[in-house]
Design a protein around this nucleic acid. Structure first.
Length: 777
DNA sequence: TCGCCTCGAGTTCC
DNA sequence: CTCGAGGCGA
């Protein structure tokens, strides 16, 4: 990551980092008021350490690492779990995206193609999402969005924001800043006992500029008072209004927040005892009537044309607006429809953000580096002359794969246009230079880390390092994945420590993490480790002795098994033990036997096996690590015989799970076929004991049953019916088998209903299903 | 078999 | 976030 930096640049960056880190240390320790999160702070320190490692001769006298007690991290704000998850929004960029969204909504609701669907449109302001919990009209808790499930408690800070009332006032709009257009709501609204308002804390453009000026002035005065020379570079100004709002809200000392010009807009709600109305607009008007500012341009509209016209109008006015917006949000207005539409993964189906085109910038592609991921994928990363796009400085950009480089025709030295897609991930849009004289970029055919062959499998775009176990990059990345926040989530075991422990020989497989305590004294003896930091780390490890089984499974990094599939598998098997039993049994299935025989004959390069020959060294040392690519390295001790009917049943049991097909079943069976993996698995499970995986569900007549929906349903789509079934603790399956308990058949049901009849399974119609749902509440 | 949708995997910035 | 690929309905 640092190799391509010139010395001058590195020295420069090290200087800036030293200043920054010193500043934040001071803010944290002396003034008890950090302006950045611990994660952000850690990132600065990590970057600094990486640079120091790459350029040891440039290490500064005032290096953060030479200062005592510099790298202490602690949580400035306490965490709050959201009672109702704070979702993000689906994004659309083109008119077609919006048209498609509207069509999807109609399809899901089973409406005709031309049926009117009323939506609200409002500005999407660029700020910080925040939830405000009011009990009996009184503000009791405010929290940031965080990761959607857990945010930070900012109640004290939020009380300092003038826009946000401590007490909701029934039936009376408050000031000129509340809903400025649209009808005034009728007075006399009752305020629900419990109501969580969700919205955006933001800073107006003018206030942002003023704040930066003020920070500069204060720095000047401060310098004068101390009799030191004033250096404008040392003043930390905010890069954009969004950062300013975030930095100002997330203060430990609410008095600092009080001095910052923050504002608030409601755009939705969370948990509530009552909803004042039947449409989104009703509720927003009620919220405005309680004295909380609401986006001033909430409009209701009935057609796509109207929506797109509104979007263009806002886009044209954008520059003149007093605040930064990044798009328009549309929501289905009818709340009963919102409820039926529900959620996909992290976003509601009933809303979409129509984003403005991303800001673009030109810069030079200086070089192309290759990174190796945990699956061995070789990813080219473009190093850019740093350039500001959309308020942040971008210096790296992913080029995805070999084809993308070819498609763009980029070569080091070219001028390129980049943008931040969806305002987050930078991407190269266009190559401005077509200089055929320049040497084309040569995509490596060997892994830059372990030198194993790197090949693209037939029909695949990605080029992968075939080193598997023996590639240090892959072993390292797998461990990083295992402890990452999305998997086991072991706090304080970052990339740097993992690399350090691997180098020391204490860490090779996941189970070793749980034996790190045996090396406590040795770790303490190392530079950079204090009593406290070691104990914090070991405590974080101990906290995961009873890990969530699905996270553990996901953490192992078995191919095709991500968060969702891991959960789906465990919902069905309850324990990892059972999962393994079935997966091993499935190795005896006819399908598995024949597919393995085929891949051996064809030898299309399942990769791992060939590479072991090209790089004989290190194989033995890799034996305790994971081979997630499957068992091709393993001698097939079982021979070709041994197919069994039980195996076929096990295979069917796996593939009958909704969303799980042959690829997943094969990956699972492969995983357990490989002796190394079995060792790693047993080793790991001797260190941890995940509790049985039990999903909480509402009690109903169909709890624990397997239901199949077939035919055309009248009042809802099949997706919706499935979602209902799952909420009632039932399992929605795709096909009828002996395990099916109930079939819900609409008109036009064919073979499935017939098969159900043959198997003697109960078949009901949609009306009967509706009754079951209603009975469960 | 085709086309849609969801999931997995890799990634950037602070 | 984006892309490719697996899963599944039609």
């Amino acid at each position: 990551m640092t190799e391509n930096l010139s010395e001058a640049d590195a020295a420069n960056e090290l200087m800036r980092l030293a200043r920054k880190i010193a500043k934040h240390n001071k803010l944290y320790h002396a003034e008890d008021s950090p302006e950045i999160s611990d994660a952000d702070y850690d990132a600065l320190v990590r970057r600094n350490n990486a640079l120091e490692e790459a350029f040891p001769h440039l290490v500064r006298d005032d290096s953060p690492n030479k200062l005592v007690g510099a790298a202490v991290a602690a949580s400035p704000l306490s965490k709050v779990k959201h009672e109702q998850r704070m979702m993000s929004l689906d994004n659309g960029f083109s008119d077609e995206d919006i048209a498609e969204w509207l069509a999807r909504v109609r399809r899901f609701l089973n409406l005709p193609e031309d049926a009117p669907v009323a939506v609200t449109a409002e500005d999407k302001i660029d700020g910080l999402s925040c939830s405000l919990r009011y009990e009996k009209g009184e503000l009791v808790l405010a929290a940031t969005r965080g990761d959607g499930q857990v945010g930070e408690d900012v109640t004290a800070n939020v009380r300092m924001i003038g826009d946000i009332p401590q007490m909701l006032c029934p039936g009376g709009g408050r000031g000129p800043e509340s809903l400025s257009t649209g009808p005034r709501p009728s007075p006399g609204n009752n305020i629900p006992d419990l109501f969580e308002i969700r919205g955006e804390v933001y800073m107006a453009k003018a206030d942002f500029a003023g704040l930066n000026e003020r920070l500069m002035d204060e720095g000047r005065t401060d310098a004068a008072a101390k009799g030191v020379e004033f250096d404008p570079e040392k003043i930390r100004q905010f890069a954009n209004p969004r950062n300013a709002a975030a930095g100002s809200l997330r203060q430990k000392d609410a008095n600092i927040t009080a001095k910052r010009p923050l504002k608030f807009w409601a755009h939705g709600w969370g948990v509530h005892s009552d909803l004042p109305g039947e449409t989104a607009l009703d509720v927003m008007e009620a919220i405005a009537s309680w004295g909380v500012p609401v986006s001033p341009l909430v409009r209701r509209m009935d057609s796509l044309e109207e929506m797109l016209g509104h979007y263009r109008h806002i886009e044209a006015e954008r520059a003149e607006m007093p605040y930064d917006i990044d798009g328009v949000v549309y929501k289905v207005d009818r709340l009963d429809w919102q409820q039926r539409l529900g959620f996909v993964a992290k976003a509601p189906r009933w809303a979409i953000a129509h984003k403005f085109p991303a800001e673009q910038a030109q810069t030079t592609l200086e070089s192309i580096d290759i990174q190796v991921g945990r699956t061995g994928k070789l990813t080219p990363v473009g190093r850019l002359t740093p350039v500001t796009v959309g308020g942040v400085v971008v210096s790296n950009v992913t080029l995805h794969n070999r084809d993308e480089i070819g498609r763009l025709g980029v070569r080091p030295g070219d001028r390129v246009v980049i943008q931040r897609a969806g305002d987050v991930i930078p991407q190269v849009v266009e190559n401005l230079t077509r200089d055929e004289q320049r040497e084309p970029f040569h995509f490596p055919d060997h892994c830059p880390i372990c030198d194993s062959e790197a090949v693209a499998e037939e029909g695949e775009v990605d080029v992968r390092c075939t080193g598997g176990l023996i590639c240090p990059a892959q072993r390292f990345q797998r461990l990083v994945h295992f402890v990452s926040r999305v998997a086991l989530d072991i706090d304080g075991l970052g990339e740097k420590s993992i690399a350090e422990f691997i180098a020391a020989g204490w860490l090779e497989s996941p189970a070793d993490i749980f034996r790190l305590h045996q090396h406590r004294a040795e770790i303490l003896a190392r530079e950079g480790w204090q009593e406290k930091s070691v104990d914090n780390l070991l405590a974080a490890v101990e906290k995961k002795r009873q890990p969530d089984a699905a996270r553990l499974l996901f953490g192992l990094g078995i191919r095709h098994i991500g968060t969702v599939t891991a959960r789906d598998l465990l919902k069905n098997f309850t324990t990892l033990k059972r999962l393994r039993e079935v997966a091993e049994l499935a190795q005896e299935s006819e399908i598995y036997r024949s597919s393995r025989a085929q891949s051996r004959d064809g030898d299309a390069g399942q990769g791992v096996s060939t590479s072991l020959d090209t790089n004989g060294e290190g194989v033995a040392s890799a034996s305790t690590s994971l081979d997630t690519n499957g068992g091709d390295t393993a001698p097939d001790t079982n021979g070709e015989g041994g197919a069994s009917p039980e195996g076929d049943v096990a295979w069917a049991e796996i593939t009958s799970i909704d969303g799980v097909g042959p690829a997943v079943a094969q990956a699972l069976a492969d995983f357990f076929h490989e002796p190394h993996n079995r060792e790693v698995w047993e080793d790991l499970l001797s260190e941890v004991s995940p509790p049985d995986y039990i999903v909480e569900t509402r009690d109903s007549a169909v709890s624990g049953k397997t239901i199949v929906f077939t035919g055309k349903l009248e009042t809802m789509s099949r997706d919706e019916a499935k979602a209902q079934a799952e909420a009632l603790g039932a399992k929605a399956s795709g096909s009828v088998s002996a395990k099916t308990d109930l079939v819900v058949a609409g008109p036009g049901a064919g073979s499935k209903a017939k098969k159900a009849a043959e198997l003697g399974i109960e078949v009901i119609d949609e009306a009967a299903w509706a009754e079951i749902v209603a009975a469960a509440g």
